[in-house]
């Protein structure tokens, strides 16, 4: 555990020593803020119109969770992560390989598993900062309105798992190259594919279509975005994370055989 934390701490500090953390945070905050604002503005307009048209004061107010939080996470933030997660994970192994520091880690009395978990945890901590930033925006809804709190927790959990799943895949891809740009590019391509693969299900109803829909990384985010925790979705994301970590371990193990 001590080793894992040492490595996680090192990774997290590395993000803040380089421009990456600030770039990612700035990018995220601006986009998140923009979309949050536009969803709130749309919500306001809609609710004025509803009042004017319909039941006047008697109509129940529109649901904040349904009209702001859900589209924000499902429609916008999940796409932003597609871009940002590769930026976070690209350096995890590629940079160690380029700088030769991988030799330090690999010849220290720590297991590959500890290194991998440490790196994953470090990257996840940076992502946790992003999640917190999101909730600064969402927190304002509590000041001016009254969204339901419990579904929001479900959404946060789902978002965290979603990001974690993308991250473990990004980390795996980062083990294949010394070049961070290649790592980021390939990660983005792979994640994008996982993101769109379930679209097949809209025109293919065969088993293949259903399987692809299951593999799709967004399919399982839908419930979370609604504020519902479905065990199947949790299992899916945890499986993807474990698979990503496992593939990373295999790839790192294979490096010992070749490595130039």
């Amino acid at each position: 555990m001590r080793n894992i934390l040492a490595i996680a701490g090192k990774e997290l500090r590395a993000y803040f020593y380089s421009p990456i953390a600030y770039l990612v945070m700035a990018f995220y905050t601006v986009l998140c803020g923009f979309f949050f604002y536009s969803f709130v503005a749309t919500y306001q307009m809609e609710s004025f119109r509803m009042q004017a048209m319909g039941g006047g004061m008697g109509a129940p107010p529109m649901n904040l969770n349904e009209y702001i939080i859900r589209p924000l996470f499902e429609g916008v933030l999940s796409v932003i992560l597609l871009l940002l997660i590769p930026l976070i994970t690209m350096r995890l192994y590629a940079e160690e390989k380029r700088a030769g520091t991988i030799e330090l880690l690999a010849t220290s009395p720590v297991t590959d598993g500890q290194i991998i978990l440490g790196k994953f945890l470090g990257a996840l901590s940076l992502f946790a900062v992003l999640v917190l930033l999101t909730f600064v925006y969402i927190g304002t809804l509590f000041v001016y309105g009254n969204p339901s709190f419990k579904p929001l927790l479900a959404t946060a959990l789902g978002y965290f798992l979603f990001g974690g799943a993308l991250m473990s895949i990004g980390m795996w891809i980062s083990t294949f190259t010394k070049n961070q740009i290649i790592a980021a590019g390939v990660s983005f391509a792979v994640l994008l594919l996982l993101y769109v693969v379930d679209w097949v299900s809209s025109y293919s109803f065969s088993t293949v279509g259903r399987v692809l829909a299951y593999i799709g990384v967004t399919t399982h985010f839908d419930n979370f975005a609604k504020g519902v925790i479905d065990l199947r979705d949790v299992v899916y994301y945890v499986s993807v994370i474990v698979l990503g970590l496992f593939l990373t371990a295999r790839s790192v193990e294979a490096l010992k055989g070749r490595a130039g």
Partner: peptide
């Protein structure tokens, strides 16, 4: 172990 290129993190 000291590899041919010192395994240092330049930002640290």
């Amino acid at each position: 172990y000291l590899p041919e290129n010192p395994p240092v993190y330049p930002e640290m």
